[in-house]
Design a protein around this nucleic acid. Structure first.
Length: 571
RNA sequence: GCGGCUGUAGUAUAGUCUGGUUAGUACUUGGGCCUUCCAAGCCUACAGCCCGGGUUCAAAUCCCGGCAGCCGCACCA
């Protein structure tokens, strides 16, 4: 299996290391070694290049410790939890709701643990394994809990996704973006999930790095200006339909995906395309990727549509590395409700709409004597009722001489002399809307794993060797500089070239140990794209040899042209 | 979280069943010799019994607990 060999080399050479190893380790965590850390940064920089420079989104950074209210509003405190129960006999642990539904046939979604305990008692739900009794039900929440402050009276959680930090900033952001849709903010950073039993190495971590973009769009306008440019791009899509019918994914163009309604809108399709492009730039080939639409029952609590990008692995099967979701207005609505802040945007119409309508004008001279201390209350009631009710009030007064209004459990009789009705024409310049959010969410650690796995070149015969065929754009070490012999002034020229390249910003490995062949092999193994060799002729003719990792071809170039030539490799 | 198997230098392994020399070997890594372009050779050095407890005169070896890995079950916004 490529996985085993790849992990072996990546551990040996300093890409991925087990965390807390000298204390025998903790599963669900990983350390990035010197090369892994650079590789990860390079991947993140490429991501920034595509989404910040390329798409015009802006990056923000918010705290990883998050107060409870935020995650209450986002639904994570309540929904990111599973009711668990354990058999007192065989000690097996179960999802309580699953086995209760199975035995009782009841729909128990949304019930409290006490209610579930009641059902266990009533329906005599026993351990499906050994028939013994089940323990009281407890909640297992996947979030890491912590206390904020010295007294610890404020509960906090390590954020389970970076997205919430952006939603919280919506008001500030929309001002920053001059209140114009669409706009996008991104965040790259750590997220935390206390997985029950993570056993898939870097694929399933308790602390992992996400790169997420939250793109705020007009719900009535999910078109994308660049869609035309990608309309003919081919996509391999595994839609809900093909999954349910057990058919193979279909290959269609972006345009066809839109026209057939397989993907809901242009922005989603464009994001699917962008994700694909990003992975291509990382050197992950098309044929190990597929796009899978979430089935209705697996959609997260906030999503209205969701597409996963999955990568093929020999060890773990198809693994989700990117999720592209239309979160609708779920988050903004929910945060607005919980925080009492208006999280919406005023959209101006191109041409103001003229609306003719009837309004009520309270006659305040009559109001005071009639309603006394309640006058203010009745006034604000009349000012805030909608058009339908105004009509009803008007009709009622004309036909019966009065309208009975129920306000805060009291009745008030509004009579003809209390009010006048006026027909007016109003200019409506726009409306307040809650934007929808399109969210591409990248699992950086999983992507790094995919990059390593699919750039891994496994030896096919004796002379061949194992190495990482890393894309030039992300290779942690870009250039190896090797004097053919470590003497006779060769090393002096080589160190000169090394520092000159380093000063130009290249990652250079200078190596003099062992034979030249060994140094090439070592550099190949960690994916160094090119090596520069200084030989005896170099001292005479000021030329050095550039050797290409993949072709092993050599080319002699002038030292003075070196920066320009290697620069071309890494642009 | 449950059950089964496993844990020896950086890597791969011998030794464990049947307790008893200084824990052996290969590769890797560092230093040196040699060497004019793809892991050559020679010399030399560094480095290991997962952690904790128990049994024993004596534990890498037997027993118990923990941790980690693999497999199966369960879980996976």
């Amino acid at each position: 299996m490529n996985h085993d060999k790849m992990i072996n080399i990546s551990t040996k050479r300093g890409f991925l290391w087990p965390s807390f190893e000298i204390y025998s380790g903790v599963s669900g965590f990983t350390d990035y070694g010197p090369l892994g850390a650079i590789l990860k940064n390079n991947i993140m920089q490429l991501w920034r290049k595509q989404y910040i420079a390329g798409e015009g989104y802006y990056e923000i950074e918010s705290p990883t410790v998050t107060p409870e209210e935020v995650l209450k509003a986002s639904g994570h405190v309540d929904n990111f939890t599973d009711p668990m129960t354990q058999c007192v006999g065989c000690k097996e642990v179960f999802r309580a709701d699953h086995i209760i539904e199975e035995v009782s046939g009841l729909e128990v979604e949304g019930m409290t643990n006490e209610e579930l305990d009641g059902i266990v008692e009533k329906h005599k739900v026993d351990c499906p394994n050994c028939g013994d009794k089940l323990s009281e039900i407890w909640n297992y929440n996947l979030m890491f809990k912590t206390n904020i402050g010295a007294k610890g009276n404020k509960t906090g959680y390590m954020r389970p996704e970076t997205a919430q930090g952006i939603f919280i900033l919506f008001k500030r952001l929309s001002r920053f973006f001059k209140n114009k849709l669409p706009f996008g903010a991104v965040q790259l950073g750590k997220a935390y999930r206390n997985e029950i039993s993570p056993r898939q190495g870097v694929i399933r971590l308790r602390e992992f790095t996400q790169a997420e973009a939250e793109i705020f769009v007009d719900p009535k306008n999910k078109t994308h200006p660049k869609f035309k440019m990608i309309a003919n791009e081919k996509l391999v899509l595994n839609s809900q339909k093909t999954q349910i019918e057990g058919k193979n994914p279909i290959t269609i163009t972006a345009k066809e995906a839109l026209e057939t309604g397989i993907v809901a809108n242009e922005i989603l399709i464009y994001q699917i395309y962008l994700a694909k492009k990003f992975l291509k730039d990382l050197g992950i080939p098309d044929d190990v990727l597929r796009f899978r639409q979430h089935l209705p029952n697996e959609m997260a609590h906030y999503a209205i549509d969701c597409w996963d990008v999955e990568v093929k692995t020999d060890r773990y099967g198809w693994v989700e590395i990117i999720g592209i979701a239309d979160r609708g207005d779920y988050d903004l609505k929910s945060h607005s409700k919980h925080s009492n802040e208006e999280l919406n945007l005023f959209i101006q119409y191109e041409n103001p709409k003229i609306i003719s309508k009837t309004i009520i004008k309270p006659n305040m001279a009559k109001f005071g004597p009639a309603f006394k201390q309640d006058a203010g209350k009745v006034k604000s009631f009349l000012e805030n009722i909608d058009e339908e009710l105004i009509e009803a009030v008007q009709n009622s007064i004309e036909e019966q001489g009065l309208y009975k209004a129920s306000i805060d459990d009291s009745y008030f009789e509004i009579k003809k002399e209390h009010v006048t009705f006026e027909n007016i024409e109003e200019k409506v310049k726009g409306e307040k809307i809650i934007p929808h959010v399109i969210e591409p969410s990248f699992g950086i650690d999983r992507i790094l794993y995919s990059v390593l796995l699919h750039s891994f070149h496994k030896a096919e015969n004796e002379e061949d060797k194992d190495y990482f065929k890393l894309a030039n754009s992300i290779a942690p070490i870009q250039i190896g500089v090797f004097p053919l012999m470590n003497k006779d002034n060769l090393n002096e020229l080589a160190t000169e070239i090394t520092s000159s390249l380093r000063n130009s910003g290249f990652m250079v490995d200078y190596d003099t140990s062992g034979t030249i062949g060994k140094r090439y092999a070592r550099a190949d193994e960690i994916g160094v794209p090119i090596a520069i060799t200084i030989d005896y002729d170099s001292l005479e003719d000021s030329k050095v040899t550039i050797r290409d990792r993949d072709t092993e071809k050599q080319e002699r170039v002038n030292i003075e042209d070196l920066k320009k030539i290697v620069g071309n490799y890494f642009n």
